[in-house]
Design a protein around this nucleic acid. Structure first.
Lengths: 141, 141
DNA sequence: ATAAACCCTTGAGCTACATCAAGGGTCAAG
DNA sequence: CTTGACCCTTGATGTAGCTCAAGGGTTTAT
């Protein structure tokens, strides 16, 4: 048993996903364990697990698996592109992220305005300020 | 032709989605035009369009249609819940949003580190710093 | 040495979110 | 008064991202 290798169940737990999901990611070429045991068990290296963490992070912030693959593939396809191309991909992602952050901030402000105006008490919501505000503003963002 | 009403094609363009999508949202109860013309055409009021914008915004930042419906439904189910309940839903969403923003910021920092280290030139990416950095760090976030 | 807890593969099924196709009305311009 | 751009409905299909079931090996603890 290689001390630097982890079986699928262990990795799944570490990443907070199911083993099915990991096998699915392998089929998709997103996270292919770098080793197999004699018996054919998937063995994930520490690097594989790192890659897994990257994937989970990217997923959590709304990147599709295809987009994540695009980022991860940069490494593989290195000599097929120029530095400029590579930097472009990364910079585009940064732009995307920034615009997502802006959207979230707007959204948060909007919700915060609602929350702050509400008493939060135990009475029926018939006169709830949040609901009144939503109605009045036509549910806008 | 009511000056305050818009037909589906117009609204679709304004929201940046297809008419099919709008009809789908109607089936899902997410955005039901408040009027129909004699001929059965959907007529969206300014308020409907506002609601549409809210939906698009929420979608853009990663809320599912079900979650969006939950927010929008607050208005409808008012007397079924207390102020506290209502405020809770909103505050939960705010929490979610904040954690998404944090994730995005981490992601952005990580990518920015990569981008800043790259020359961005026209040479082959074989020696690209971004790729080197990715490899070295095991593609982490 | 056997049962529980793992692991494997193949392939079907599921949810969310659309998207398209068929067949057919409506309306404004020329 | 017809042509082209709209609109309608019903219902099938598609894509992403899993999830499960069947049938069967492997490892480990007792």
């Amino acid at each position: 048993m290689n001390t630097t290798s982890n079986k699928i169940g262990h990795v799944a737990k570490a990443l907070g996903v199911s083993v099915d999901t990991l096998r699915f990611y392998e089929r998709e070429g997103l996270l292919v364990p770098s080793l197999r045991s004699e018996a054919g068990y998937r063995l994930y290296s520490a690097q594989d697990v790192q890659r897994g963490h990257f994937i989970m992070h990217a997923k959590a912030v709304g990147f599709s698996l295809a987009e994540i693959a695009q980022l991860l593939d940069l490494e593989v396809t290195r000599d097929a592109q120029t530095c400029h191309d590579v930097k472009q991909v990364v910079d585009d992602k940064i732009q995307e992220i920034e615009s997502k952050i802006l959207d979230l901030r707007k959204m948060k402000q909007s919700l915060k305005g609602l929350s702050d105006a509400c008493c939060g008490g135990e009475e029926s919501a018939i006169h709830c300020t949040i609901l009144d505000t939503l109605a009045e503003r036509g549910n806008h963002a």
